[in-house]
C-alpha cells in the first residue's frame, strides 16, 4: 500500500503541475485527497513514542529473574536487534518452533526474565500486558526499518509453516464464507475507500507485511501484526485466533516469504 500511496501522490503532484497519464487522470478527487493525507501522515509518526517505550522495556530489568531482554536471541544471536525483524518468522533451535516476533518475545520473557507468558497471551490488546508486547514490537521492528525483507523458508518446519499459511489464506468459513483471499486475493480492489493489498503477490505482501506494526491515526492506537491479524479474523466473522497461535504465525510466514526482497517500512502509519 505504501508504494501505491507514493505513486498516487506523485500523480497528484503531476496533475497540479502540468500533465498526468490517462490512468492517473481518471483517479477521482476523493482518492487523491486521501492519498495526500496519508502522505502527510508520514511525517511525525507517533509510533516513535511507542518505539521509545519499547526500547526502555527492552533494556530495563524485570520479572522474577530481574533481567532485561538485552540477551534475547531474535534469530541473529543474543542481543542482536538490528535487522532481526526483517528475517522473521523463522525456525528457532531452542524451541524447535517457527516463531514470529511476538511469540519469540514471549519465549525470551519466559526464559530470560522468568515471566509467565499467560497474561500476555490472554489479555486484551488494549490491556497493559499487551501494551508491553506492542511497544516491544514497535521498537524491534523499527530496528529493521529500511532493511530488505529476507524470509525464505528452508528448514522443513519453515516450509511446512509456509504451506499451512497458504492453505489458511484460502480457508473459507463462517457465516459470510470469508477467507483472507476474499479481500486480499485480487489485485486493485478496495473495501469502501480502503485499498486492499494483494497478498499472494510480492508488492502486495510487502504492503501488508512490511508496514505493520503501525500507528492507526483514526483510533490513536499502535497495532502489532498480531493485533492486525486478530482484527482481520474478527471482520472475517471467524472465532478469535489465540495470540501467537500457529495459524497467525503460518499466515505471517506466508506474507513474509511472499514479500521477501521488498523493503521493511516499520513501524508504519495508517489513517
Amino acid at each position: 500500500m505504501v508504494d501505491r500511496v507514493s505513486v498516487g501522490v506523485a500523480a497528484f503532484l503531476a496533475v497540479s503541475a502540468v500533465a498526468a497519464t490517462a490512468a492517473y487522470a481518471q483517479k477521482d478527487a476523493a482518492q487523491e485527497g486521501i492519498e495526500a493525507y496519508r502522505e502527510a501522515l508520514q511525517d511525525g509518526n507517533p509510533a516513535e513514542l511507542y518505539e521509545a517505550t519499547g526500547e526502555e522495556l527492552w533494556k530495563t530489568p524485570a520479572g522474577p529473574k530481574k533481567a532485561s531482554l538485552e540477551q534475547c536471541d531474535l534469530g541473529l544471536g543474543p542481543g542482536v536487534v538490528k535487522g532481526a525483524y526483517a528475517r522473521l518468522p523463522r525456525h528457532f533451535q531452542d524451541t524447535d518452533r517457527v516463531q514470529d516476533l511476538e511469540s519469540r518475545l514471549l519465549t525470551c520473557m519466559e526464559t530470560l526474565q522468568g515471566k509467565d507468558p499467560k497474561p500476555y497471551v490472554e489479555s486484551a490488546f488494549t490491556a497493559p500486558p499487551k501494551e508491553e508486547m506492542i511497544a516491544l514490537a514497535a521498537y524491534v521492528s523499527g530496528q529493521s526499518k529500511g532493511d530488505a525483507i529476507a524470509v525464505a523458508p528452508k528448514h522443513p518446519k519453515e516450509q511446512a509453516m509456509y504451506d499451512l499459511g497458504k492453505r489458511m489464506f484460502y480457508y473459507q468459513s463462517g457465516p459470510y464464507d470469508f477467507s483472507c483471499a476474499t479481500c486480499h486475493g485480487q489485485e486493485g480492489t478496495r473495501i469502501r475507500l480502503q485499498d486492499l493489498p494483494y497478498i499472494p503477490g510480492t508488492k502486495g505482501a510487502a504492503a501488508g507485511w512490511g508496514s505493520w506494526p503501525a500507528y492507526r491515526v483514526s483510533a490513536g492506537q499502535m497495532w502489532s501484526m498480531q493485533w492486525r491479524l486478530n482484527d482481520c479474523f474478527r471482520q472475517q466473522r471467524f472465532p478469535e485466533p489465540v495470540y501467537t497461535s500457529d495459524a497467525t504465525i503460518a499466515l505471517s510466514m506466508y506474507m513474509a516469504a511472499n514479500a521477501s526482497g521488498e523493503t521493511m517500512k516499520t513501524p508504519g502509519i495508517k489513517r
Binding site: A160, P239, V242
Partner: peptide, 28 residues
C-alpha cells in the same frame, strides 16, 4: 499448497489456534 499443509497438520493447527469469543464460536 505444499505437503506441509496436509489435512492432518492443517486440522491440528485450526483446532489449536482459535477460541470462542462472544457470538463467534469455534464451530464456525
Amino acid at each position: 499448497w505444499g505437503p506441509g499443509a496436509d489435512d492432518a497438520a492443517f486440522t491440528r493447527m485450526l483446532a489449536a489456534s482459535f477460541k470462542d469469543k462472544g457470538i463467534a464460536k469455534v464451530d464456525r
